[in-house]
Amino acid sequence: MASSIRVRATANGDITEVQALIQHPMDTGLVKDAKGEVIPAHFIQRLKFECNGKDVFVADWGTAVSKDPYVKFSFKGAKKGDDLKVSWTDNKGGSDTTTAKIS
């Protein structure tokens, strides 16, 4: 299965810029489908980025984060070729993980 996570990490000097795009419905639990039945809430609760054994960024999300969420941040202390591990878990126990090389 293709990963739900697309991540790009670019090192520029000491600073690594990370952009991540995740495929996820992020259902709020407030929307009804065509039959008038409520679509149950289904959203990512925690998204974590680890580099060299250290958490560099942790996102806690509610239902107000858009569908197919996007996030951008930067951190120091990594170099080209280092691994960046990205993982998420959602409110239904689903999860996914991927590892990207910093370029």
Partner: peptide, 29 residues
């Protein structure tokens, strides 16, 4: 936080030491 959403808190990010305090994301309103 989005004040008049059904629940106000949208997202919360932890910024460990060494991470730049800047975040971009997309929210529902």
């Amino acid at each position: 936080f989005v004040a008049e959403n059904p629940s106000a808190l949208a997202a919360s990010y932890k910024i460990p030491d060494g991470t730049i305090p800047a975040v971009a994301n997309r929210l529902k309103m």
